[in-house]
Computed example of a mutant assay.
Amino acid sequence: MRHIKDIPNNRYKIGLYQWNNKYIIKVESGLYEQTYKIEQYEVSGPEEIETVVDDPFIEAITEKFDSMHHDFQLSLKRNEILF
Score class of each variant (00 low, 15 high):
83 F>M: 12
47 E>G: 09
53 V>Y: 03
11 R>A: 15
42 E>L: 09
9 N>R: 07
31 L>M: 15
29 S>P: 07
29 S>E: 12
46 P>D: 01
26 K>Q: 12
57 F>M: 08
81 I>K: 08
71 D>P: 04
77 K>R: 14
39 E>A: 11
2 R>P: 06
1 M>N: 02
3 H>G: 10
39 E>V: 09
44 S>A: 14
72 F>H: 14
4 I>N: 06
37 K>H: 09
75 S>Q: 15
48 E>K: 08
23 Y>N: 04
43 V>F: 02
60 A>F: 12
41 Y>S: 12
49 I>C: 00
31 L>V: 13
26 K>P: 03
74 L>H: 08
13 K>W: 09
46 P>Q: 03
31 L>C: 12
32 Y>E: 12
6 D>K: 14
69 H>Y: 09
11 R>H: 15
15 G>L: 04
32 Y>C: 07
14 I>S: 01
11 R>M: 15
28 E>M: 11
35 T>S: 12
12 Y>W: 09
13 K>L: 13
79 N>R: 13
66 D>G: 11
46 P>G: 03
66 D>V: 13
15 G>D: 02
69 H>A: 09
15 G>P: 02
17 Y>P: 05
10 N>M: 00
11 R>W: 15
6 D>L: 13
57 F>H: 07
41 Y>D: 12
18 Q>F: 11
47 E>D: 10
78 R>L: 14
37 K>W: 06
20 N>Y: 11
68 M>I: 08
49 I>K: 05
42 E>F: 10
29 S>K: 13
26 K>S: 05
47 E>C: 02
70 H>N: 11
56 P>K: 02
8 P>Q: 03
78 R>A: 15
65 F>N: 06
70 H>P: 00
67 S>W: 12
19 W>C: 08
7 I>W: 03
81 I>R: 08
18 Q>W: 07
67 S>N: 12
57 F>G: 00
47 E>Y: 05
18 Q>I: 07
79 N>G: 11
12 Y>C: 02
47 E>M: 02
78 R>D: 15
12 Y>P: 04
26 K>L: 10
52 V>D: 03
81 I>Y: 08
16 L>R: 05
33 E>I: 08
77 K>F: 14
50 E>V: 05
65 F>T: 04
1 M>D: 00
79 N>I: 03
60 A>N: 12
13 K>A: 13
18 Q>M: 09
46 P>R: 06
55 D>N: 15
22 K>P: 01
5 K>F: 07
64 K>F: 06
31 L>W: 15
31 L>A: 14
70 H>F: 14
33 E>D: 09
4 I>S: 06
8 P>K: 01
7 I>Y: 04
33 E>A: 05
73 Q>L: 13
55 D>S: 15
25 I>W: 06
12 Y>T: 06
59 E>W: 01
77 K>N: 11
34 Q>P: 03
20 N>Q: 14
42 E>Q: 10
69 H>K: 10
38 I>R: 02
40 Q>S: 02
82 L>V: 01
82 L>N: 00
34 Q>Y: 04
4 I>T: 09
12 Y>K: 02
25 I>N: 00
70 H>E: 13
